[in-house]
Simulated scan of single mutants.
Amino acid sequence: MPVDVSDDELVQRFPGEPITHDNAAHYRGRLNRELLMNRCAECGRWHAPAKPICPDCWSSRVSAQPVSGDGVIFMAIFLHRGPAAPGIDYRVPYPVVAVELAEQEGLRFTSTVVGADNDDIHIGAPVRLDWIDRAGVPTPVFALRGSPS
C-alpha cells in the first residue's frame, strides 16, 4: 500500500534532508521504495536534481516519474573517514558511487553499493537499484548486477 504523507510529516521522516517543493516527490517515492526523477512532458528528457523547469527546453511541464534503477557505475570513490552516520563504518573504506541510469545518458544518481567487496566496485560495473533502511526510512542504494539482494 503506497505511503502518503503531508509535507510536515515528510520533513519529520527525513530530518536533516534538504526537502523542497521541487524534490518532495522524490522523498515521497522513497517512502514507497520507488526511485523518482523529474521528466519533462514536452521534450521527454530526464533531469536531476529536481528543478521546476526543464533545463533542456525550459518547459514547466515536469513531473517525478519512476526510473528502473538499472545502470552502470560512472564514478566511484572510497571514503576513509567522514561524518558519523547510521550504518556507516569507515574502518573499511565506504563506497560512494554516481550511477548513470539506463533511462538516459547523463542521468545520474549518487548513493552507495551494498553487498559487494570494494575490489569489485569499479567504473563501468553494471548495477541495479536496491533498498536499505537507514535511520528508519527507505534509502536507495545499488547492488552489483547479478549479486543477491
Rank of each mutant, 00 (worst) to 15 (best):
V62Y: 10
G115C: 04
P52S: 12
L101P: 03
S6P: 05
P18F: 02
P95M: 09
A48H: 12
R145G: 10
R108E: 04
Q65V: 12
G124P: 01
P55K: 15
E42G: 09
A102F: 00
E105L: 01
Y27N: 02
A50H: 07
G71M: 09
R145T: 12
A48P: 00
N23Q: 06
V72W: 02
G115H: 03
P95W: 11
L36R: 14
A48E: 03
R134H: 04
L10N: 10
V92K: 14
L35V: 10
G69A: 09
I88V: 15
G16D: 13
A135V: 00
V137S: 05
V62F: 09
T20K: 07
P95V: 13
F14V: 03
D56C: 04
S149R: 14
G87W: 10
S59Q: 08
R134V: 14
R81G: 06
L129Q: 11
P140S: 05
H122A: 15
V3S: 11
D8R: 11
G115E: 10
I88M: 07
D117F: 03
H47L: 14
R28V: 01
F142K: 08
H80Q: 08
D56F: 15
R30G: 01
F142I: 12
P52F: 05
W131Y: 07
P148C: 03
A41K: 09
S147G: 05
T139Y: 14
R134W: 06
G16E: 10
